[in-house]
Structure formats: structure tokens, C-alpha cells
Simulated assay, not measured.
Amino acid sequence: MFPAAARRIRSGRRTPGGAALIGAGLCLGLGLGLSLGLVGCSAPVPEATASADPTPQPGIMPLRGTPVDPSRAEHPSLAVKIDNHPAARPQLGLERADLVFEELVEGGLTRYVALWHSDVPDAVGPVRSIRPMDPEILSSFGGIVAYSGGQPQFVAAMRASPLLNVVFDDDAGGLFVRADDRDSPHDVVLAADETVTLHSDLAPPTGQFDYADSAAEATASLAGDPTTTIVTRFSESGGRAWAWDPAATGYLRSQDGAADLDSTGAQLNATNVVVLRVEVDRGSDVPRTILTGSGTAWVSTGGSTMPATWFKDAAAAPIRLADAVGATIELAPGNTWIELVPTDDGSVELVP
């Protein structure tokens, strides 16, 4: 058992009182069957800086913030490129991921980069090809990345990252299979637990975010404004929404106006929803999210949302979240989805 006396070392200061809730993007009628009341506008980026590295939190799962016997955390994280085409849903094992990044790809669609460490399933998928922003998203975690291939220049960049690459095109050990009940190319499945076991000599991940001791003590719970629904658009092709559910003590996910279900038939949910407004390089037919620098963000926990600034100094640096005075924001222990919403063609709407 983990030591009951193990506590986190705090970093930064919480902002007292309620924080002003500012939306972002254009006012769009999303047609999601939601009662949308507050329409977002662009928010200024505070002139603040965050600490360079997450605060050490011994006895805590680094990607989830939950207590753990340290011996159970001594294995690498597994990042997998996961399909989000309608034909790929429901995905396998996505509900057990610690972190999920949603990013824009071609045709206005999105794909996921999901990371598992605290709870690695037997199988995850459907696995798809790598994209140019993935090395920038994943380099700070180390460990393993699995994908089905990709354009040569994108694969080369991923192989040059600090992660061990496990690629469907090169698989000689049978770690990937094609599922009989799914159509190609939405049918590639990875033996996730076996992959991690085979490479258990790799180091565990370092923390990405800071975590409070409980959801009630998370920064957004203390300093945010009530928010029932978070609606994001990555393009004109479709929208997704997160609705706060007090009974589930989490946010329930919808896509294109329908509940987004996991492989068990339950609605996908998140303890924390973090929205980052990001620049997108559209100089080729494959859009590339830019995830170094800083920008506007919103952090939602426990039914409340607060504005923030995100910082990422380099590909190998973690994302830092700071409040209006530069103090590090602490998330609630649990899983987190990070929505990388384009500044040019995306929008964010926050509903009180």
C-alpha cells in the first residue's frame, strides 16, 4: 500500500474568489441539441509564467494524480494514435486512458493521441497513422508510442523523438492484429498490456500536470465559474461537447449531437477537460498543430471553468497551466482530455 502520510508538495498560489469566465472563438449555432447560453469570445493571454517542471508528487500516478504503491508505477507509458472516424467508434480502451489529446487532421476530422500508464488495457484501437504534431505532443512523456505508419517524413520525425516506436508496418512480433468485426482501415488493434510488458525496462513518465489532493481542492473547483457544458469545434465538419454530470462526478462526452460511447457501451467521461487554443500550420494538405509557445486555455473541473494560459517551452517540455497571476493550476485526480482547438477555424463555447 502507498504510505497514507504521503502528501503533495504544493506549487503556486490559488486565485481567491471566482475567476471571470471568458469564452473563445465565434458564436456558432452548433446543432448539437444543447441549450447553449454563453457564447465565447477571444480572451487575452495573461502576462504570466509557470514553473518549468511539474512539482514532484511521490506515491502519485504521474499522468492521473491518483495515489499508488510506487512499485506499480515502475513501467513506461504507452501512447497510441487512435482513430476518431465515425466508423472507428466505439474505440477500444479509450475510457481507461490517463490522458487523451484531440487534434485536427485532414478534412476537418480529428484524431486522438491517448496515453495509458495507470491502467493499461489488454487491447486498444483502432490504431491509425502518425501526424506531424505528434512528436511535439509526446516527447515530454518518453516511453512507447504505437501507430500504424504514416508519411515518411512524419515517421522519421517520430522515430527521432525520445519514444520507442512500435509500428504496425514493422510488426514482426504479432503485437498488432486486424479485428474481424471492423472494416479496414479502422480495424488495427494493439496488444497494449503485452507491449508495455515487453518494454518494462523503459523509465516511467514524468508528470505533465499538477494535481490537487481532491476534486474539491482543484484550482478550477475553487476559483472557476459554474459551467454546465463545454462545446468545441475544430472545423465546420462537426462539434463535440462535454456536459457536467454531478452524479458521475465528471464530464460526459458527445460528438456530432450524439453520446460518444466507449467500448463497454457507457458514455465517455473525463474528470478534467482542458481546452488549449493553438495555431495550426496549413501549409500542406496535412494540418500541423503548433504546441510550443503559449496561448489561451480553459480548465474545467467539478462543474466549474477558469481561464488560463498554457506554456510549452519545447517539444520535450511538459505543458504548464497558469492562472491570471502566474500560479500553477492544479487539476483534480483522475483522467484528463486535452482539446487542441485551432485559433483560426475553431471555436469554444462555455455554457453556464
Rank of each mutant, 00 (worst) to 15 (best):
I82V: 14
N269Y: 03
S284D: 10
M306S: 01
P58I: 05
T229K: 13
T55S: 15
R72D: 12
V196E: 03
G59W: 08
D69I: 00
D83A: 08
R7D: 07
E194K: 11
A79I: 05
D256G: 04
A24G: 14
A5I: 06
A314G: 11
G37W: 03
A241Y: 01
Q153G: 04
T49A: 11
A297R: 07
V299C: 04
T206P: 04
R96P: 00
S300D: 04
D313A: 15
W298D: 02
L34C: 10
V120M: 09
D193H: 04
P70M: 10
G173N: 12
G107E: 04
Y147E: 00
A191K: 10
W244Y: 06
R282F: 06
P333F: 09
D180F: 06
R233D: 03
D345I: 14
G149T: 02
E103Q: 12
V351F: 02
W310T: 00
Y251N: 04
R320V: 07
V341D: 01
R182W: 00
T49N: 04
E279S: 13
T66V: 12
L63V: 05
L350P: 08
L28I: 15
L32E: 08
G31C: 00
V100P: 03
T305M: 08
Y251I: 04
D171Y: 06
G346Y: 14
V188I: 15
D225T: 13
F2Y: 11
L32I: 03
L99H: 08
V105I: 15
N335C: 02
S214R: 09
G149C: 05
A327R: 13
G302T: 01
D122V: 13
P152Q: 13
G174Y: 15
L34F: 10
F168A: 10
G295L: 14
S235A: 13
L164N: 07
A87P: 01
W337H: 08
D210S: 13
A50I: 13
D245S: 14
W337P: 01
D344W: 10
G125W: 04
A215P: 14
A218P: 08
T66H: 02
P46S: 07
D245H: 09
V80D: 00
M306P: 01
I130A: 12
Q267N: 05
V341S: 10
L99S: 05
